[in-house]
Design a binder for these strands. Structure first.
Lengths: 104, 104
DNA sequence: ACATAATTTAGATGTTTAGCTAAATTACGA
DNA sequence: TCGTAATTTAGCTAAACATCTAAATTATGT
């Protein structure tokens, strides 16, 4: 849990998670959204991986990261619970553009 | 928001918040729950103060800290919102002394 | 005014972090 | 096999962090 919060304590890393919310993206695609060097982004990815908030699928020369939403939810939930707060899925409006054609 | 998550990334600090959930406590009382030195705890309090998660009322020679629950809630809420999650007050089971009167 | 209690500040040390550039790794395609 | 692309590892620096002991601060009670 500490690692999740540590991961979330950096704005770039929160933004990465945000971006991954829309769709999985490669390390390079993600890095393009930021002003820092790729090695720096790579380190951020490592922190997110250690917190188990993302996982990366290597395919050829690229690595596609995807958000482990359930892990994020669970961490928030576990923490919030100890404060008498409830966390749960809410409105669906944050991925509205296209109907997801998900793999079956 | 980064400061809130940073504050939450340390187990001792989370525990402090937890303790303050039950009732306000003085720095000394809080420190007695931990194995580290008082100056160390004082530094933890400072981090929590900077995140605006607690505030300390000086009375005579003691400082009584209390949890700013609404700030914690708000931070969690703002963050969760960007992930399509909802945070809200839940069951009252952690402060069970009185029966909750659920407002409609 | 003094001793005591509660807390923080100062100053030191070792560890972690975020950032950089340069180099290594790995896979692909010609 | 060679060159290129994508990503990470290595090695560095500077700043931040967690921790300690010792000292300073502030208020209280006698």
């Amino acid at each position: 849990m500490s690692q999740v919060f540590k991961a979330l304590s950096d704005p770039s890393r929160r933004r990465v998670l945000q971006l991954l919310r829309e769709r999985p993206m490669t390390a390079g695609e993600l890095a393009d959204h930021f002003d820092v060097s790729k090695p720096t982004m790579s380190a951020h990815f490592a922190v997110l991986r250690e917190a188990d908030l993302v996982d990366g699928a290597k395919k050829g020369t690229t690595i596609t990261y995807h958000l482990k939403m359930s892990v994020l939810e669970e961490a928030l939930l576990d923490f919030a619970e100890t404060f008498g707060l409830q966390v749960k899925p809410a409105r669906r409006s944050a991925t509205p553009r296209r109907i997801a054609r998900r793999e079956v």
